[in-house]
Design a binder for these strands. Structure first.
Length: 571
RNA sequence: GUUCUCGUAGCUUAAUGGAUAAAGCAUUGGAUUGCGGAUCCAAGGACUGAGGGUUCGACUCCCUCCGAGAACGCCA
C-alpha cells in the first residue's frame, strides 16, 4: 500500500473512534518538507463536530496523534508526528524508510509508481482530431501532446486505453478547400511529386482562399454549398480531387503522429458516421427530442442547434451522435473521453444533452475534456486569416534552433530533444488555461523545459556508465552505516522520490500532466544541485550515491515517458 | 444582447478552501586545476484587476463593478 493511503486509513480509523465521525482524511504531500513529508488538516475540518469533547483543534489533533502512535507497525516508519497551530498534523518519515523506498525503485525499475486504480477498465480516448484539407496547427499539437500523455498516465494505472482519432473529411471546410483548389492560381498538378509538407501547405492555402471568397461573395457562397452536397454524394466531378486531397492530408498527419510518438488504433471519419448520425436524429423527431424548423432539424436545449440541415445533411452535431454509437459498438468502454479545444465546450454541452435523452447509458460514460486556447503573442490563431503556425513548422524550427547551438548532436537525438521541447511546452501549463505561445520560450533549453530534464537524465546515465567502466561488477548495496552520513541535498532527493507514485496518480486522476512536469523539474533541480556540491565517483559514499543517481534517472525516464517524451542516453 | 471562461512579479505561468502566494524567463552579482557549465548559488521584484460577503482560514466559494477572450439555427 502507498504510504499516503496508509496514513489516510489510519487517520480515518482513529478519528472514527475519537469523534465517531466517518471521514475522508485529506493528506497533502509536502513539497518543501518544511511541513513534513505528509500533512493533514483533518483536525481542523472535523473539529466543529468534536467541539463538545475538545477545547480547540490543537487539542483534538494532539489526541489524534496520541492514538496514532499506539500502532507501532505504523509509527515505526515515522520519525515524528507533530501538531502545529492552528491544528495541522505533520508526518515525518524516518531516513531508513526513505532509503527503503530508494531500494524499491532499484527493484521495480520502470514499474515503480504503477497503480491499479483503473485495472480492467476500458477507456476510449479521442484526441488530435485534425481536419483533412486544413492545417495541423499548434492547437492540434497541444491536443495530441495532452492526449498521448493522458493515455500513458491512464495505462500506467492499469487501464486499457484505445487511442482514436476523428477526422472531418466532409463538410463545408472541405467544400471551401476544393473550391480553392479548383480556382487557385496554384495548380494541384504541380504538387503531385512534391513533399508531404509542400502538399499540405498547398491545401492550407486553398482552404484559406476558399474561405475568404465564401465570406465575400454571395454567388460563390452558393457554389461552395453546392460543392458540399457533391462531396456528400461523392459526385464524380469532384471525387478524384477529394480523394487526392484527403489522402495527402492524412499522409501528412501520419508523419506528425509518428514524430510525436502517438499510434492510433482506429481512425474515424465524418464521412463514415454521417449517415448513421442522420438516421439517429430523424428517428427521434416523432418522440419530440428534435423538432423541424425552417426545413432543418433542430434541438432546443441550453441553446438551439441544427442537427440536420434544410438540405438534408447531417451537421457536426448529428455526426457526433453517429460516432458515439459506432464507437461503443466497436469497443464497449467503461469511459469515453474526448479531448478538444475549449471553444467546443458549448457545442459538446448540447450534444451531451441530446445523448442523455437518446443514449443515456452512453452519455453517463462520456466525458468532454477541453483545453485552453493556444494563442499567439499577436492575437488568436485562425486558419482562415492565414495567420497560422503549423505544427510541423514548430517541430522543425525547434530542431533547427537546437542544432544551431549544438552542432555535433546526432540527428536522432536532435529529433528527441526538439520534439521533447515542444511537447513539454504544451504540457507544463494547466490544461484548462489559455496559453500564449512564445517562440523563444517553447524552444528554450534552460529553465523549466523538456531539454533541461532530458539533459539531467543524460547526466545520470553518463555517471552510471562511467562507474561501470571504472568498476565493472559493482553490485550496489545500501549499508545501514550510511544513515548518519547522508547529506541534506541527498535527503531532499530521497524525500521527493517518495512522492512520485502519488504525483502520477494525481496527474492521471485529474488529467493534469502539468503536475508531473513540475515534479520532474523539481527533481532535476534537486539532483543538479546535489551533483554540483558532491562528488559521486571515487567517494566513500560512492555506492549509495550511485544508487541515488540511478533512482533519479529511473524516475526521470518513467516520468518523461508518461509525458510522451523520449529520454536520450546522451545529448 | 445571452451564456461561459479568464484577470497572480516587467514577461510566461503554478498553487484538491490551509501554513511565509511558488517557479521559469528577463535583470544584477557570484561559482570551474572535479563525475557533461545545456549546470549551480545568491539578490531584487506581487496588498493575487477593484470593492463587498461567507469561513478559524480565500488566488480558490458567493455578489457587484471594471477589463480581456470564447461560444451562441443550417461551419467544423
Amino acid at each position: 500500500m502507498k504510504l499516503k493511503d496508509e496514513i489516510n486509513s489510519n487517520l480515518q480509523k482513529v478519528i472514527e473512534s475519537i469523534a465517531g465521525e466517518k471521514t475522508e482524511a485529506e493528506i497533502q504531500s509536502g513539497q518543501e518538507s518544511i511541513h513534513g513529508d505528509y500533512s493533514s488538516n483533518v483536525a481542523l475540518k472535523i473539529f466543529p463536530k468534536a467541539k463538545d469533547k475538545f477545547k480547540n483543534p490543537i487539542e483534538f489533533a494532539e489526541k489524534i496523534v496520541e492514538e496514532l502512535e499506539k500502532d507501532s507497525g505504523f509509527s515505526d516508519n515515522l520519525e515524528k508526528i507533530e501538531v502545529i497551530a492552528p491544528g495541522f498534523i505533520n508526518f515525518w518519515l524516518k531516513d531508513a524508510k526513505l532509503l527503503k523506498n530508494l531500494e524499491e525503485i532499484t527493484d521495480q525499475k520502470e514499474n515503480y509508481g504503477k497503480g491499479k486504480r483503473l485495472k480492467n477498465k476500458k477507456i476510449m480516448l479521442e484526441f488530435a482530431d485534425p481536419n483533412p484539407f486544413k492545417e495541423f496547427h499548434i492547437g492540434h499539437l497541444r491536443n495530441i501532446s495532452l492526449g498521448e500523455s493522458y493515455a500513458r498516465l491512464l495505462e500506467f494505472e492499469g487501464g486499457e486505453v484505445l487511442r482514436v482519432n476523428y477526422q472531418g473529411d466532409v463538410g463545408m471546410h472541405v467544400a471551401k478547400a476544393i473550391y480553392g483548389i479548383q480556382n487557385s492560381k496554384l495548380k494541384i498538378q504541380n504538387y503531385e511529386n512534391k513533399s508531404l509538407k509542400a502538399r499540405s501547405e498547398f491545401l492550407g492555402k486553398a482552404y484559406a482562399e476558399g474561405s475568404k471568397v465564401f465570406e465575400e461573395d454571395e454567388k460563390i457562397q452558393k457554389e461552395i454549398k453546392d460543392l458540399n452536397i457533391k462531396i456528400y454524394q461523392k459526385d464524380s466531378s469532384i471525387r478524384e480531387i477529394w480523394e487526392k486531397g484527403r489522402q495527402w492530408s492524412l499522409d501528412h498527419f501520419e508523419e506528425i503522429y509518428k514524430r510525436v510518438g502517438t499510434k492510433y488504433k482506429r481512425y474515424y471519419f465524418e464521412s463514415e458516421v454521417a449517415q448513421t448520425g442522420k438516421e439517429i436524429v430523424l428517428s427521434h423527431i416523432e418522440d419530440g427530442v428534435f423538432e423541424k424548423h425552417d426545413g432543418a432539424v433542430v434541438f432546443r436545449g441550453s441553446h438551439t442547434r441544427v442537427f440536420v440541415t434544410s438540405e438534408d445533411y447531417a451537421t457536426y452535431e448529428a455526426k457526433d451522435l453517429g460516432l458515439a454509437k459506432i464507437k461503443y459498438s466497436e469497443f464497449p468502454y467503461d469511459k469515453s473521453i474526448i479531448i478538444t479545444a475549449n471553444e467546443q465546450e458549448g457545442y459538446f454541452k448540447v450534444v451531451l444533452e441530446v445523448m442523455e435523452k437518446i443514449f443515456p447509458e452512453l452519455s453517463s460514460k462520456t466525458v468532454h475534456n477541453a483545453f485552453g486556447f493556444v494563442k499567439l503573442k499577436d492575437g488568436k490563431m485562425s486558419s482562415r486569416s492565414g495567420n497560422i503556425v503549423s505544427g510541423e513548422w514548430l517541430l522543425d524550427e525547434a530542431k533547427k534552433r537546437i542544432k544551431e547551438q549544438f552542432k555535433d548532436m546526432g540527428e536522432k537525438t536532435l529529433e528527441m530533444v526538439g520534439v521533447g521541447a515542444v511537447k513539454y511546452s504544451m504540457l507544463k501549463f494547466s490544461r484548462t488555461s489559455d496559453i500564449t505561445f512564445s517562440f523563444e520560450e517553447s524552444i528554450n533549453l534552460e529553465g523549466n523545459s523538456g531539454p533541461y530534464i532530458q539533459y539531467t537524465y543524460a547526466r545520470t546515465q553518463s555517471v552510471l556508465a562511467k562507474s561501470e567502466i571504472l568498476n565493472p561488477k559493482s553490485e550496489i548495496n545500501l549499508k545501514s552505516q550510511i544513515l548518519d552520513q547522508i547529506e541534506t541535498e541527498e535527503l531532499l532527493i530521497l524525500r521527493l522520490l517518495v512522492h512520485f507514485p502519488e504525483v502520477v496518480e494525481e496527474a492521471g486522476g485529474n488529467f493534469a500532466p502539468n503536475l508531473l512536469c513540475n515534479y520532474l523539474f523539481d527533481l532535476s533541480q534537486k539532483f543538479n544541485n546535489f551533483y554540483q556540491k558532491h562528488k559521486i565517483l571515487g567517494n566513500p559514499m560512492e555506492e549509495f550515491r550511485l544508487q541515488l543517481t540511478s533512482g533519479v534517472g529511473q524516475v526521470l525516464k518513467t516520468g518523461l515517458y508518461l509525458l510522451g517524451i523520449e529520454s536520450p542516453e546522451k545529448m
